[in-house]
Design a protein around this nucleic acid. Structure first.
Lengths: 151, 151
DNA sequence: ACAACATGTAACTAAATAAATTACAATTTG
DNA sequence: CAAATTGTAATTTATTTAGTTACATGTTGT
């Protein structure tokens, strides 16, 4: 199955908390404005991030904080928090067991799909939230510079 | 979005054609029985596989055949035929461009997601239909042997 | 104490996607 | 030309995801 925007929105939330901490109030409303979704969606994602131990939140207080250094949070940690063990590819589970193919395709594809998934997840595990935040900052600086030039 | 069962069903079709060619009539009905879906679903997938040049079919004739040696058809070829350039991960495209994060998250995640996707697709590209067929046959043989033992 | 503001969640609705079905025109073959 | 089959469009159904409404619970400052 395709991985939903929940994953990208969660990365968004964590990056936002890190970049804007102390500069703007970190309410679910503020975050929702940046993501352009509803505050409830944000709170739902933050609840999952909190349960996974990636952020610390306090009921009633708009001061969420990262539970670890951005260098120590990988995209795969975030993926796990939000999608758990959701597979990237879907295997058709309902095939005819009487058939040589239908009776063995699941186990077979499971092996090969796992190889592909593990390769992708390894890349996610090798990318830290810090990498994402730095890239965001670089791209932002580039845009600002380009804008100045035009004036 | 999740990658649908279309991908696994397509691999199923190709493996079935190779394994059962000459042994059973390869109608969309026969294939549908093995996959436990409807003949129309099978024909739709075969239409895509045919357009991608992976199989040859003739209108009105139940004799589809692989257009290449199973060693020369990779799982990524099949993926491309069915899913095209569909991404494994979805990026939320509608975020606030005024925000440092919202304005740069897409480009940023696009980079990192691409790395992960490319790693997964490389594994698919490194796996041939022949690998899948052989694994299916081995698993089938194992099951048959285990069954004999019981008797 | 209480008003204003938040979070945390449950329950529901709406939208998007995929699978299955229905229907039928076009093609092949004996 | 009849029977069997493919190819494809159009529709329905099922599933999943995003968004909304509602509200109980917690916090803070006065």
């Amino acid at each position: 199955m395709k991985i939903s925007t929940r994953f990208s929105d969660s990365i968004h939330i964590l990056a936002f908390i890190n970049i804007y901490k102390g500069k703007v109030p970190l309410t679910s409303n503020t975050l929702a404005s940046s993501i352009e979704t509803s505050p409830v969606v944000v709170r739902r994602l933050m609840s999952a991030l909190s349960k996974a131990g990636l952020i610390n939140t306090k009921h009633g207080v708009a001061e969420p904080e990262l539970a670890a250094d951005p260098n120590d949070i990988s995209l795969y940690d975030i993926f796990l928090a939000i999608e758990g063990d959701a597979p990237l590819f879907t295997i058709d589970e309902r095939t005819n067991p009487e058939c040589i193919v239908g009776g063995n395709i699941q186990e077979t594809l499971n092996e090969f799909y796992n190889q592909a998934e593990t390769a992708a997840k390894a890349k996610l595990a090798a990318t830290s939230l810090e990498d994402v935040i730095e890239t965001i900052k670089v791209k932002h600086a580039q845009k600002k510079a380009a804008q100045r030039k035009k004036d």
